[in-house]
């Protein structure tokens, strides 16, 4: 064993995370490596030092927290409004057309790449489900009464330059659009006003095409619950830049 490998096992040793076989190998290494023995001593002392950094919170903290909580409205389960296409959740890929929004046309490169990515993500996340084909997205568009009833805004027809995916399978995510006065960015997309879509843990991959401002807002609202991975420079994208939001639920 090299000292490099030993470092990981030293750490695992302190954390009680090594297998018996790893412990035996580490022991053999330590028996003939004084350097690693010294490092183990250093790590042990360091861990003790870190543990001793633990402090009691300031006395006033508890009351401060409870006062802030008392000033808040009581928590409530938010209403669930299932979009019309929700019945298709059994289909492995679900492309939701939000309100009078739209599905990207499959003839467009951005749409194709988006669907391809959904498929890839799905293959990783939901191996038990039937592998979807890109064609399955099309019926969702047809069966959604609101879908494709409005011309695409010209900016939305531009290539989808940015995409955002949650890092982990979402357990529950409520995408509220339009009826939240506190998020002015959302109000700039009139066709989405008043729409609420809850993804409530039904297995599936949800694909939204939204503007960058809305996606930034969604990330801001949900970053404490889910890690998001972004591709492209979402921070600096113009508010109306079309943007893919892919949510993996499963």
């Amino acid at each position: 064993m090299t000292c490099e490998e030993a470092l990981v096992l030293l750490s695992g040793h302190l954390d009680g995370a090594n297998t018996p076989e790893e412990e035996a190998r580490l022991e053999a290494h330590l028996a003939r490596c004084p350097d690693c023995r010294r490092i183990l001593d250093a790590y042990t002392a360091m861990d003790q030092g870190i543990l001793e950094l633990s402090e009691e919170p300031p006395a006033q903290l508890h009351d401060r927290i409870m006062a802030a909580v008392a000033a808040e409205p009581k928590p409530s389960r938010r209403r669930r409004v299932r979009p019309a296409v929700m019945g298709l959740a059994a289909a492995a890929v679900l492309c939701l057309a939000l309100g009078l929004g739209y599905l990207p046309r499959q003839t467009e490169d951005p749409a194709q790449s988006a669907v391809a990515r959904v498929n890839n993500t799905l293959a990783d996340a939901l191996p038990v489900q039937e592998e979807p084909s890109t064609q399955e997205a099309a019926p969702a568009q047809e069966e959604s009464p609101e879908a494709a009833t409005r011309e695409l805004p010209s900016s939305a027809a531009a290539p989808a330059t940015f995409s955002v995916e949650p890092e982990a399978a979402a357990e529950s995510l409520l995408v509220e659009l339009g009826d939240n006065a506190a998020s002015p960015a959302v109000e700039t997309i009139p066709q989405l006003e008043g729409q609420t879509v809850e993804i409530d843990g039904t297995c599936g991959v949800y694909h939204f095409t939204l503007d960058a401002a809305t996606v930034r807002q969604i990330i801001a609202d949900y970053s404490e619950l889910y890690g998001f991975r972004t591709h492209g420079d979402l921070e600096n994208a113009a508010d109306d830049t079309p943007c893919d939001l892919v949510i993996v639920c499963g």
């Binding site: 927290i65 802030a68 909580v69 808040e72 928590p75 389960r77 938010r78 409520l174 404490e224 619950l225």
Partner: peptide, 10 residues
Amino acid sequence: FLKAWRSLGS
């Protein structure tokens, strides 16, 4: 804790 209180519903 405030966030927790607000989002307990989810």
